[in-house]
């Protein structure tokens, strides 16, 4: 038998902590997905970088 029986309020607190944990995990996944999408679209390239790589005079 547990020395400290789980109170209903402890269960509620656990549910809250689990919820916050899942929200934080989802936020990390969203930021990662957004970064991948932006890198693929070329949002983080310097202006003129693409034309320079194609032999242009950019920069």
């Amino acid at each position: 038998m547990s020395l400290r029986p789980t109170h209903e309020l402890h269960r509620r607190r656990f549910g809250r902590n689990l919820g916050v944990g899942l929200v934080l995990a989802a936020f990390v996944a969203i930021v990662f997905g957004l970064t991948v999408a932006k890198v693929q679209r070329g949002d983080f390239e310097r202006p003129g970088a693409s034309s320079a790589s194609q032999g242009g005079s950019g920069g």
Binding site: H7, L9, R12, R13, G15, R16, L18, G19, V20
Partner: peptide
Amino acid sequence: TPRETEAGFGDYFA
């Protein structure tokens, strides 16, 4: 000791 008004996750969502 948790307080009597311990909120659940749903309360913050509400």
